[in-house]
């Protein structure tokens, strides 16, 4: 490991002075004239440098639209998005997105997938190859270097994807529900794993999810989004200590407090979205708070 640490290519480390995204009064609507529907309206927030910001909101609240704008696949109708003061104009390796669905190229091996970024930019240097080797080891896939993605398990695919993004040393990593669809156990393993990676490299990370446990476990800052049209409803600073371990976090009082607070905000949003109120959502939160209360009493 020591030998590897020496080789930790400087490029894989986060840059000290970069990585703050400012979203200012951004709006985005789809459709025209009478059929236009605002998905994002007058939305402002900051993704702070070197922090892990998690965005959580009811499903279908326009999170993915925001991500597409952050990544540069789409442009806002109004407002501005800047990275370290410079406006975002299109997709760039500065802002790498790890998508909901696995986007590893099935026709390339794990190694080829990881090396894709450097190769596409004509940087197939010894340096890049060393980095790839280092990252393969980091994500525990050295033995799966020459396997094709369909031969990997769901968790391995996600890790390969993280490595593929990290080799490009993005200023900001954007993750759109990357662990959706994994089974509960692999998911928890991935949380710890991903938190570990973040804690090691400390680059700006923007993580979008609908899973409250995931959000609290990972976040430095938690952005709670309103229902459509999307705006930031509240920001919770999650001041839990790092490095984080599942057992520590879910036993901690503070995590429970944050959870109850976040759930009640989310609950309000869910209630708003359904005229007449969504009984199901209300029941869910009630049951949840009860369970949490019980857990506390038990402890």
């Amino acid at each position: 490991m020591a030998a590897l640490d020496n080789q930790v290519p400087s490029a894989v480390k986060a840059r000290a002075d970069a990585g703050e995204i400012q979203v200012t009064n951004v709006s985005r609507s789809y459709g025209v004239a009478r059929f236009a529907k605002d998905v994002v309206r007058d939305c402002s927030f900051t993704i702070e440098r070197h922090k892990l910001t998690v965005m959580i909101g009811p499903s279908g609240c326009g999170k993915t639209t925001l991500i597409r704008m952050l990544a540069g696949f789409e442009k806002p109708n109004a407002g501005s998005i800047t990275l370290d003061g410079k406006p975002v104009t299109g997709p760039n390796k500065d802002r790498l997105v790890v998508f909901q669905e696995t986007a590893l190229f099935p026709w390339m091996t794990t190694y080829e997938n990881i090396m894709y970024g450097p190769r596409a930019r004509g940087e197939d240097s010894q340096h890049a190859r060393d980095q790839a080797k280092f990252l393969l080891d980091k994500v525990g896939l050295t033995g799966f270097r020459d396997k094709y993605p369909p031969q990997l398990s769901g968790g391995m695919q996600r890790r390969a994807e993280l490595a593929r993004a990290m080799i490009n040393n993005p200023v900001v990593m954007i993750l759109d529900e990357p662990f959706r669809g994994l089974d509960a156990m692999s998911k928890e393993l991935m949380w710890e794993y991903y938190a570990g990676l973040y804690e090691e490299f400390r680059r700006t990370n923007f993580f979008v999810t609908t899973d409250i446990d995931e959000a609290i476990f990972l976040a430095d800052r938690l952005l709670i989004m309103s229902n459509i049209p999307t705006r930031v409803r509240a920001v919770i600073e999650v001041d839990l200590p790092r490095p984080r371990r599942l057992a520590d976090i879910f036993d901690s009082e503070r995590a429970n407090e944050v959870k109850i607070q976040a759930l009640s905000l989310l609950h309000e949003e869910a209630m708003k979205s359904f005229t007449g109120g969504s009984k199901a959502a209300a029941d869910f939160v009630e049951a949840y708070s009860k369970r949490m209360g019980k857990a506390k009493a038990g402890a």
Partner: peptide, 26 residues
């Protein structure tokens, strides 16, 4: 799947690289 082309653009590929590395093998 559109995610493959998006990923390739994101990783810094240009239009022709996307054609050669994603469209053709895909």
């Amino acid at each position: 799947d559109e995610s493959y082309t998006r990923a390739a653009y994101c990783l810094g590929a240009n239009k022709w690289q996307v054609f050669g590395h994603v469209i053709v093998p895909g």
